[in-house]
Computed example of a mutant assay.
Amino acid sequence: MNILITSAGRRVSLVKAFKNELKKLVPISNVFTVDYEPELSAACYESDKSFPVPKAEDLNYIDSLLNICIENDIKLIIPTIDTELLVLAKNKNMFLDKGIIIIVSSVDFVLKCRDKHKIHDFFVKNNIQVAKEYSRSDYKFPLFLKPYDGSRSVDNFIIKRKEDLNSMHLENEKLMFLEYLDQDLYEEFTCDMYYDKDNKLKCVVPRKRIEIRDGEVNKGITKKNIIIDFSKKHLSHINGAIGCLTVQFFKHKVNEQIIGIEINPRFGGGFPLTYLAGANYVKWILEEYLFNKEIDEQFDCWKNNLLMLRYDNEILVNDFEH
């Protein structure tokens, strides 16, 4: 019962978590990884074995991934980045025919998450407020601009006055012109949510984002707050959603108004905080999909106010040539 983590990159903590939990359940097992350049991936050195694959947009990506799974007796695939989710969702049944399960949400839901216009519509349909979106001819400063299909905070801009808005912003058709949510008034939370095989919400762990680096939380703290019951009320079931979803909210510091921002249907970079707080999504995935075990009802017994401060560490490889 080997598993594979794709686009491993620097996700060392996620690899360690899966190794820890898998070997408890199946001592003779392996956690493998793939990456475009595994020799330059820290997480690939942490895994039991790694393999090179083309980039997700390459026409040979799926065949390469499938061959690796068949040759190495892999039963479960864990995706980690936005750009691979759609192609994996579209090919989920091909892998399933070979006895390989990809932990990825449905094509329809992945498409919603990849388009921030659609995920705003999804929030509204579920009675969750969203930031106001302006037209290019009628807007109000300050503005927040971001691509409707972006990730990792790439090409996000805060525009506080007319002089900050330039032709590049106006001509980039991918940029959404949004109401700016002042962080003096709002706190930003990323929630790790676990959805079982039946698309039912089993756990919510809000992580307050204290400091971000390269679009990923660098300092964060778990918080048991109003967002938990809010999520259970509005997002108790999402058609097509499975595994770990990262859902981003802003919460007003005074009146506790909650605004939905976006959803990424995958493990987020800050998930290790949730795991170390006691919400064991890794174990639940293994139990659900390898052992056909049902997940218990709502789990809330994770540590509140657990602070995570991240730092850089080194992996050294002797006699390396590049």
Rank of each mutant, 00 (worst) to 15 (best):
D35T: 02
Y36F: 15
Y36N: 14
Y36W: 10
Y36G: 14
Y36D: 12
E37C: 10
E39M: 15
E39C: 09
L40K: 09
L40W: 11
S41P: 12
S41D: 09
S41Y: 05
S41L: 05
C44T: 02
Y45D: 11
Y45E: 06
E46W: 06
E46C: 04
S47K: 04
D48T: 02
D48M: 08
D48K: 00
K49N: 15
K49I: 07
S50K: 04
S50T: 07
S50G: 03
F51R: 03
P52D: 02
V53E: 09
V53I: 14
V53F: 07
V53Y: 01
P54M: 08
P54N: 12
P54V: 02
P54S: 12
K55P: 05
K55H: 14
A56I: 09
E57S: 15
D58S: 15
D58T: 07
I62C: 07
I62H: 00
S64R: 09
S64A: 13
L66C: 05
N67F: 06
N67D: 13
N67K: 14
I68Y: 03
I70H: 00
I70Q: 01
E71V: 03
E71C: 11
E71H: 10
D73K: 13
D73N: 15
D73W: 02
I74Q: 10
I74H: 08
I74R: 02
L76F: 01
I78D: 06
P79H: 02
P79V: 01
D82K: 04
D82I: 00
D82T: 09
T83N: 11
T83Y: 07
E84F: 05
E84V: 12
L86W: 06
L86F: 08
L86V: 13
L88W: 05
L88G: 04
L88R: 03
A89P: 00
N91Q: 08
K92N: 14
N93G: 01
N93V: 12
N93K: 15
F95S: 04
F95A: 00
I100G: 03
V104D: 03
V104C: 10
V107F: 04
D108F: 01
D108C: 06
F109E: 03
L111R: 07
K112F: 00
K112M: 06
K112T: 10
C113G: 02
C113S: 01
C113R: 01
R114P: 02
R114F: 02
D115F: 07
K116M: 09
K116H: 08
K116L: 00
H117D: 10
H117P: 01
H117W: 14
K118S: 07
H120M: 15
D121W: 03
D121E: 12
F122G: 02
F122W: 11
F123W: 01
V124E: 12
V124S: 10
N126I: 02
Q129F: 09
Q129T: 00
V130G: 10
V130P: 06
V130E: 06
A131R: 02
A131E: 13
K132H: 15
E133Y: 04
Y134M: 00
S135W: 11
R136I: 11
R136Q: 13
S137E: 15
S137R: 14
